[in-house]
């Protein structure tokens, strides 16, 4: 991880009618960082994400990437949301290719990247399968492979493992960490799950309830692989829990 700033959010504010949802949010993400964002259930998480992807117009503030205003067309940004948004009429391989096709890179490069990423998540055997023939975990892998294939500069993830079986979730989290370490992608990962945040991140951004502000930024330098029962792990987990506990 370098000290280079990848994404800079300054004074991000957004309201719906009279309801102020995001209140003057500012933070930075360094290149290659794995940033987890956690907040209490019902904080403006979705609004925050949609503002970040420019699905909403923001009221004031700025979001810059590499020093320029964020531009979905120019900047390589990939998203992974909770729903497995695979295209049911395309095979696994075609699904993964799809993102690259939009970027118009050459055939040779495209083939190489697709092969690489399929190998990394163990989908090579399933290249000719259609999504309906795959289990939930395989589908989630397709989505992750598609996102990593474009070698995005920024990967935005919104609780991608929320609905998965726990064993599977742990397994996919480890896979994600491996991919991230190999590719050096900058990741912003939004979750409700504090343990997950402590397990994955380099740094945790804690949000408040609505109107959402940044409450604290917590460095998470624990060595990997991490152990959820390690005292240092528990310490960070408790700190974050204390900051957002509403239940």
């Amino acid at each position: 991880m370098s000290e280079e700033i990848k994404v800079k959010v300054e004074h991000l504010t957004k309201s719906f009618g009279d309801l102020l949802v995001l209140d003057d949010i500012s933070f930075e993400v360094k290149k290659g960082e794995f940033l987890c964002i956690v907040g209490p259930t019902g904080c403006g998480k979705t609004t925050f994400l949609n503002s970040l992807c420019k699905l909403y117009d923001i009221d004031s503030g700025s979001i810059t990437m590499n020093g320029k205003p964020i531009d979905l067309k120019r900047d390589d940004i990939a998203y992974i949301f909770q729903e497995y948004s695979t295209m049911s009429w395309l095979t696994v391989e075609e699904n993964i290719r799809y993102g690259l096709k939009i970027k118009h890179c050459g055939e040779a490069l495209m083939r190489e990247r697709v092969e690489n990423v399929m190998e990394m998540v163990g989908l090579t055997k399933y290249r000719n399968y259609y999504p309906r023939q795959l289990s939930a975990s395989m589908l989630q892998r397709v989505v992750i492979a598609r996102a990593f294939a474009v070698e995005p500069q920024l990967l935005l993830m919104d609780e991608p493992y929320g609905q998965l079986d726990l064993q599977l979730k742990y397994h996919l989290e480890d896979e994600l960490i491996n991919l991230w370490r190999k590719t050096g992608t900058t990741v912003i990962f939004i979750t409700h799950n504090i343990e997950e945040a402590v397990y994955l991140s380099n740094r945790i951004l804690v949000l408040t309830n609505k109107p959402t502000k940044v409450k604290e930024s917590i460095e998470n330098p624990l060595p990997r692989p991490r152990k959820v029962s390690a005292p240092e792990f528990v310490e960070i987990r408790e700190r974050v829990t204390e900051l957002i506990k509403w239940w």
């Binding site: 259930t41 609780e159 929320g162 609905q163 979750t191 409700h192 799950n193 504090i194 509403w246 239940w247």
Partner: peptide, 13 residues
């Protein structure tokens, strides 16, 4: 099983 992690803790309590 379908609830988010924080709501789950609350419900367990």
């Amino acid at each position: 099983g379908h609830l988010d992690a924080q709501t789950r803790y609350l419900m367990e309590e």
